[in-house]
Amino acid sequence: MDPRHDDDILHVRDLKMHFPLTGGVFFQRPKAWVKAVDGVSLSIRRGETLGLVGESGCGKTTLGRCILRLYRPTAGRILFNGHDLTAMSSREVRPLRRRMQVIFQDPYASLNPRMTAGAIIGEPLLIHKAVNGKEELRARVAELADTVGFHPSMLDRFPHQFSSGQRQRIGVARALALNPEFIVADEPVSALDVSIQAQIINLLEELQRRFSLTYLFIAHDLSVVRHISDRVAVMYLGHVVELAKRDDIYVNPRHPYTQALLAAVPIPDPEVEATRERFVLAGETPSPINPPTGCVFHPRCPIAIERCSREAPVLKEVAPDHWAACIRDPGYDSAPTEAPHPPPQPPAPA
C-alpha cells in the first residue's frame, strides 16, 4: 500500500478497465464505455488476505480478472512480484500464471462436466508440464485431493456426482496444483449452503498457513470477509472508496458508503438488531456507463456537499493505515497529497 511495505506481492496502479458498448451491424464502433474499473490503486502484501467487497456491478470481479490478466486493462499498471503484467504479451505472462491462480464462485459452472475430478485437478499440471509421466501425475493429484479433504477414491467420478461443497474442494485443489503464491478467490463460498461455507472457509485458511498463500478474497458477504481478511477494500462504481485493516474498517468505517453497507447487513442476533442504529441508503447504484461527476457516490450520500459533485476524491491515508476517498473526512484535506502508491521500479527483464 505504501513505502513502509516493500514486501508487496502485487501493486495495482491507476487501473482502468472500460468495456465498449458497440452499435451498428457491420462496423462495430463503440457507442459508449462501461467504466467497470475506473482508476483503482492498491497493493497486496505477501501472505495476507485482502478482502474486496462491494455490491454487484462495483467492478470487484473485473478487477480480479484484470489482475489475473484474463482481461487486458484499458489503462494503468499491475505489478506482480515486480513484473509489469500489463506490458507483457500473453506468451510472456504464461510462466507467471503458475504463480497466480483462481477459485471461482460457481462450482457447477467452473468444472468441466465431461472430465473426472482427477482429470480436472491434473489438467494444470499437464498444461504447464509440471509432472513427468503418468505415475507422477497420479501421485500428485492424489496428494492434492488429500490436501483439500477429498477422498482419493472419488477422483474417478464426474462433477455432477458431487455436492456443491465437494465440488468447490475440487476447484481449490485445481488452484493449488501448481504451487501458486497468490490466489484470487472470487466469491468462493457464496454458492454454498451456510452449513458448508464454514468448511470451505476453514480449508482456505488452513491452506494459506500451510503454503504461505496470499489471497485476494472477493465477496459480497461482509461477515465472511470480516472473518477471513487481514485488510479490506470497499469498491463502489469502479472505485476503491475505503481500504483499511479489518477491524478498523468494521469498527470505525470512515466512508459514508462503507457505513451504509455495514448498516444494511442484518446481524443474526435479535437483541443487537433491536437496538441497532438503522441507516438505510436511498436510491440505487447509478450506471457505470454514465457515472456521476465528482465523487461517484455523491447522489446517494447523506453528507454530500456541493464540492462533492465537482471534485473527484482520491484514496488518501486519512488515519494511520486507513485510506478513504471522501472529501468530507476530517483527515482528508490534511492527508499527504502525493500518490500513495509509489510505483516500484520495474525490475530487469525476467
Binding site: 455436492s163 452449513s195 464454514a198
Partner: peptide
C-alpha cells in the same frame, strides 16, 4: 456457530457442521 458475525472480532476458527445435507 458456523456463521461468522459482522459485529464480532474474528474467532480463531469457524465450527462448521460436518458432512453434507
Amino acid at each position: 456457530q458456523s456463521i461468522p458475525r459482522l459485529d464480532e472480532e474474528r474467532k480463531e476458527k469457524l465450527q462448521p457442521i460436518p458432512g453434507q445435507p
